[in-house]
Design a binder for these strands. Structure first.
Lengths: 127, 127
DNA sequence: AACAATATTGACGTTTACGTAAAATGCGTA
DNA sequence: TACGCATTTTACGTAAACGTCAATATTGTT
């Protein structure tokens, strides 16, 4: 039998710097499904993993609806040919989006670096 | 070959796939400053450039407030030592954020690729 | 048993980033 | 001159993602 460890709601809020409201909201949105001990929520390692996926998605600017789509790709059902091909299509779309974001990041980093160089020059001149 | 100096509102909405409402909203937010010919807005190349920065920032999940901060870094005033050092600090923060996003993207791309591989395997088995 | 700490369930409130509809204005063309 | 079309201002509406109470319950400690 697999060792089941649980996390309380406050352990997760502490670890990830979020509020209980956020965790309950994600549960309402069916993104998490903690078990219950009486009324208390017990988050499983699976919940914790999904939470990490959610927060990572949010950092990348995805909406919760988009995060849900991405997570559903991870644990999709076997399915038949048509479904599998559609899934590949959606994966390709997301990959394209992410590659666009990569370009956007590189551009922004380069620009910020330029600013930094010119600021540093002025600081040197002030000596 | 005179470079066109102004863009109408509909030219910009067409080019970037946004609505007039969006452009006016960004103007209310002081992110854009089109000139006027009578009542009509005339967007300058500078407005267009800023618009591109805004949209790029949004793709990366930045709020308009954050986009504003980033844009302000680009055209900051000369300033004295203290200001310049604070600016460097904020630049470093944004760079760190962007680097985190890069990691997030790489992870997500890798995971999506794994899904893709397993989907492809099942498709091959269906032959 | 009393109490503090933690958690739970409503439920209304707030911010961000626009959407959308209404009414007025200006401009080129039939 | 009448008309269509783009544009403008004004202003209420909305979806997403939580925030912020308040009232109640549960659990461990004194």
């Amino acid at each position: 039998m697999t060792k089941r460890r649980y996390y309380t709601i406050s352990e997760l809020t502490a670890e990830f710097g979020i509020t209980t409201r956020t965790l309950r909201f994600y549960e309402d949105e069916k993104l998490l499904n903690p078990e219950r001990q009486a009324r208390k929520r017990l988050y499983t390692p699976r919940d914790r993993t999904r939470l990490k996926l959610i927060l990572r998605g949010k950092r990348l600017g995805f909406s919760l609806a988009e995060v849900r789509e991405i997570i559903e790709m991870y644990d999709h059902a076997p399915g038949e040919r048509g479904q599998l091909e559609k899934l590949q299509g959606r994966i390709a779309e997301r990959q394209a989006e992410l590659e666009q974001k990569q370009k956007d990041i590189l551009e922004t980093l380069e620009e910020l670096n330029q600013v930094n160089v010119s600021v540093q020059q002025r600081l040197n001149e002030l000596k």
